[in-house]
Each structure stands twice: as structure tokens, then as C-alpha cells.
Design a protein around this nucleic acid. Structure first.
Lengths: 210, 210
DNA sequence: ATGATTGGATAGTGCTACTCTCCAATATTA
DNA sequence: TAATATTGGAGAGTAGCACTATCCAATCAT
């Protein structure tokens, strides 16, 4: 398969495929001569993945390159790789503040939830940023709400983790893509659940008992 | 308070404040002469809100203007306003497909969950896009996972809705800002719950019983 | 053998969120 | 009062990003 066939298969301009090759989002084809290379099914799949990451998921080319590199080559330490890969996904994390207590809001939150607080987890910075944003916009998150969200999302995490493949390569792909692709699904479901609940209430259905 | 004091208070360059004025993200001050205007505490608060929307939440100027306009002036139909405001938030929705069944994946999903399917809910298009992205990237969402996420997020929706203020103005602000600002918190909590669960397992703690 | 296609490199485009520069009118300060 | 600084307002400029277009010599396809 030559580049024009590959581009047609993926529904992309040839120039864009060349761009992804240059940016190392797509592996090179096998050269058959000085000015020709052959592409196969793996390139088609990869292009679909790249489009998903750059489009709906909303990664930058830089972020996508990082994520794809980790999926391609998970290192020896699986959990470190998972952490690094997930932290390459948006949203951007908050920069650490005061050295003695860089993420005070996140620390307090995790204490409340009874979860491990480790400032080296990239998601801690992300939580700090999100809590700080809510606070600075004048809508701080109550402890009650935090506790509720935390309970619910631990539930989701257990579900996801129970389905993680054992093989490292597959585990990284599952975790990264699961995070990148399923998070938007969760958000859409939350919004729809809001609508659904609101409509039921408008119709006069009683709110569900606790 | 003059513009330079306002900018200093908010920690922004004067040029940026002027830019927000021009873009109608910030209401004008009260003119005290041809070349002077006075700003007050409401401008400081608004700037904080604008920064939160443009920064951590990741809205474009256009989207922020739409959201802020609806917060400022909720119309008569509260639920329509809520829908319009929330649909101005990212991520972008999928364009409708075939006219007879524009969002097949979302329809099937909502049927499974026993929720109302109304193609006019903007979040339906968003769900369709997210499901399509997962599918095209080679990680379609199983019915089991969908059911689980749906259950969990209905729980969140009930919690949120129970705390929505009754007064329209406040309700729009609560819903829009709650969606924009709390969603990142939820995502960070999910990632942390994953880490927490993974760490516990590494330590040899038994997985929780169902 | 002749026109199309290729990989590769360089430059250009369109968009966005600022940021800079100017200006005449007005404040502030010496 | 005179010199200096600041203001609101408008237009142009900038930097970053994801492409997209153009060139080129080498090589295919017919």
C-alpha cells in the first residue's frame, strides 16, 4: 500500500499523513526504494488512533507523541509508565506551590477520602488545579460533595482496574486509552443523567429515596 | 478603582483586561470622564471567573462569552437556558448523521440505561461523539461498562440536582459553573482512585468484595 | 519515454489568545 | 501652572498550533 492509498483508506489528505510521519505519530513504512515505501494495516489502525487522540480526545501533537511512545514501549516499571502516560493527558496540572506543602487542597481532600496522598502522583497536581479553579471562581467544593464524588469514583476505579489486562503492553494501552476515551463518555453520561433527572422532576416524579 | 489597579488586583496585564472588555467578557466600568472609568469588586470577581473559564476549564473566548451571557441573563425557560449554557461547554459534540437516526450509539446506550432519548439534548451528540471515538480507536465500550458508568453517574446527578438553588439566576450559574468546574475535579478523582486502588493491590491488599 | 507519484524538506495558512503601539483626552505631581 | 503619567479605545502585530501547499529529484506505471 502506498501513501496515497493509505491516506485514502484513512480519509485524510496525503499532506496530513506526511505531517504525522514527520511528527513521529505514525511509524514509517518499509522502504522499497529511494522514493517509495509500503504501508500496511497497522498504519491504518494507527491513523485511526491518532485521529481519535487529536480530535475528540483533544490532545496536542506533542501530547499524542508522548502517549503513543509509551504505549509502544512500556518500560520495566509498569506503574511508573502508567503514571507517566496518564499524566501526559489533559487537563494541565497545577504547578506546585510552596515546597513544604505544594498541593494543600488536594492533600486535605485525599485525607478526607482516606486515600494515599503522594505529591508525586501527577493527578494530585491536577486535583489541586481543579479545586483551586473552583475556589477562585467562587464555587469551592464542599467536603460533603468531595466525599460523595470520591466514593462514586472509587467505585468506577475498581470496576476499571478489575478489567485491566495483565500483559504490560496491553495494560498501558488499556489504561491510557481508557482514560482518554472513556472520560468523555462519563462526562456526557453525567450531563445526560442531569437532564434525565431534571425532566423526571418536571414531570412530577418524586425524587428517588436515598 | 482604575483599570491599572483592577489589572494589578487580578494579576493580569492591563492589555489583557482591555482585551476582555473588548470581547465583552468583562462589563465596562462606570465612566467618570471621557478617558476614565471606575471599576469595583464585581469586576475583580468577574475577572477571576473569566480566568477560570479560559484557563483550567479551557473554554475559548467565544464559548466563555456565550456561557457568561447566559449566566448574566437567564431567560424565562430555565431548562432551555440550562441546556444551552451547558452545551456551550466543551468537548465538541458530534455532528448529526443520517437524519432518521442521527445518534445511533447514543440512542442504544440510553435505551440500555432506561433513560430518556431526545436527540435535541446537546449532550446526546456529545455522547455519540465519545462513543464513536472509542469505537474508531479500537476500544468500543461494552454494555456492561456503560451500565455501570450510567448507574454511578445517575447517582452523581441526583446529588447535584438536590443541591441546585431554586432561584433561576443562581440555578444557571450553579449548573454551568458546576459542570465546568466540577467535571475536572471528578476526572482527577477518578485518576487518583485508580492509583489508590493500584497501590493497594501492589501492597497485597485484597480487592474489595462486590 | 513520458507523465504521474513518491518521500522529503521548506514555507505558508488560518485561527486563537493575547500583546503592543498609538492617540488625544484627562489626571496627577512638582 | 507646567511637566509628566495614565486612561480608554482602536488597530496592528505576535506566538503557537495543526495542518496544507509547493518544490524537487528519484522512481513508477503505461
Amino acid at each position: 500500500m502506498r501513501i496515497s492509498a493509505l491516506a485514502a483508506e484513512a480519509g485524510l489528505p496525503v499532506a496530513t499523513v506526511k505531517f504525522y510521519l514527520r511528527e513521529r505519530l505514525l511509524h514509517a513504512g518499509t522502504a522499497t526504494s529511494a522514493t517509495q515505501a509500503a504501508y500496511d494495516e497497522s498504519h491504518v489502525r494507527r491513523l485511526r488512533l491518532v485521529r481519535a487522540l487529536l480530535g475528540p480526545v483533544g490532545l496536542t501533537v506533542q501530547q499524542a507523541r508522548t502517549v503513543l511512545a509509551l504505549v509502544d514501549e512500556p518500560g520495566d516499571d509498569l506503574y511508573a509508565t502508567l503514571g507517566r502516560a496518564v499524566s501526559a493527558l489533559p487537563p494541565a496540572a497545577a504547578p506546585p506551590g510552596d515546597a513544604s506543602d505544594p498541593f494543600p487542597r488536594a492533600r486535605a481532600a485525599l485525607d478526607t477520602l482516606g486515600q494515599v496522598y503522594d505529591p508525586d502522583f501527577p493527578a494530585v497536581a491536577q486535583l489541586e488545579g481543579a479545586l483551586a479553579a473552583a475556589e477562585s471562581a467562587g464555587m469551592p467544593i464542599s467536603a460533603e460533595r468531595l466525599a460523595h464524588y470520591g466514593r462514586v469514583l472509587s467505585d468506577v476505579a475498581e470496576f476499571d482496574l478489575a478489567r485491566m489486562p495483565g500483559e504490560p503492553h496491553a495494560a498501558v494501552e488499556y489504561t491510557v486509552l481508557g482514560t482518554a476515551l472513556y472520560e468523555p463518555v462519563m462526562l456526557a453520561l453525567r450531563r445526560l443523567a442531569h437532564q434525565d433527572a431534571a425532566v423526571r422532576r418536571l414531570r412530577g416524579d418524586p425524587p428517588p429515596v436515598e
